[in-house]
């Protein structure tokens, strides 16, 4: 826990303070990480969101039909995706895909003395390795969430259009009418918070690997488990604050 806080503090130092004292981080590695964390995850995010959108619409239709209120299916799909399922699902995918990869990569670097070599070359590992991953995640997770929301709506639309006989304009109108911009913003705030938690937990796990290949495996598992737990608990807390607070 102490390590984790230390990591957060030195990250903040390198992102916010150090650039003003002339120690800039490089931009190119950030983009490289953005491609890995964000762009390569896009197909998986799209497929998952589409399935969830379809499932949501089908289940909503099933329940709402009994009340004769099928007209509300788009409302339910949009609001659920924007507020909850979008941020959470995309975070789950990114934890499984990128968080674990970051933990394993850093762990392997630690085990093979690469990180020590960086320190001896007077290159700070936080600045050199962690800052690009952190910033890339902070940008890409919300971006992926937006993508996921769109694809999820599309999934909902396919069910509404082909099974429930909505016309496209009607679907869009209902969806726009029910959702407010705050629904979108709250989801994006959530995903930014998740991004922070996920990447710091993964980096922390990777940097503190002990003992060879086995240690790398354990760190990877730990990073996924802790990230998932932290993310889900935080989601509950944030939902409470955003929608139940007042």
């Amino acid at each position: 826990m102490k390590n984790y806080l230390n990591l957060n503090l030195s990250l903040l130092y390198w992102v916010l303070v150090a650039p003003f004292s002339g120690q800039f981080f490089k931009i190119a590695p950030i983009f490289r990480q953005m491609v890995f964390i964000g762009v390569r995850a896009a197909p998986m995010v799209a497929l998952t969101s589409f399935s969830v959108g379809v499932t949501l619409a089908m289940q909503a239709a099933h329940s709402l039909q009994q009340l004769g209120a099928e007209i509300y299916v788009p409302d339910l799909v949009t609001v659920t995706l924007l507020r909850e399922l979008g941020p959470v699902l995309i975070a789950v995918i990114v934890i499984g895909r990128s968080g674990s990869a970051v933990a394993a990569e850093l762990g392997t670097m630690k085990v093979s003395e690469e990180i020590e070599a960086l320190e001896v070359m007077a290159i700070n590992p936080i600045r050199f390795l962690i800052v690009p991953r952190f910033l890339a995640m902070l940008v890409m997770l919300p971006v992926l969430t937006i993508l996921g929301n769109y694809v999820g709506f599309f999934g909902g639309w396919t069910v509404c259009h082909y099974a429930l006989g909505f016309n496209t304009a009607g679907f869009i109108l209902r969806a726009l009418e029910s959702a407010t911009t705050w629904d979108l913003y709250s989801g994006l705030i959530k995903s930014a918070v998740f991004a922070w938690v996920v990447i710091t937990i993964a980096c922390n796990a990777g940097l503190h690997v002990d003992g060879g290949a086995e240690g790398v495996g354990q760190a990877t598992t730990a990073s996924v488990v802790y990230s998932l737990l932290a993310m889900l608990v935080l989601n509950a807390v944030l939902t409470g604050i955003f929608f139940f607070g007042s």
Binding site: K110, H208, D210
Partner: peptide, 17 residues
């Protein structure tokens, strides 16, 4: 000793909580 890599100033030492 069990290889204590990284600097010894505790900034990056030991395990996850």
């Amino acid at each position: 000793a069990p290889r204590p890599l990284i600097s010894a100033r505790g900034r990056l030492s030991r395990k996850m909580p």
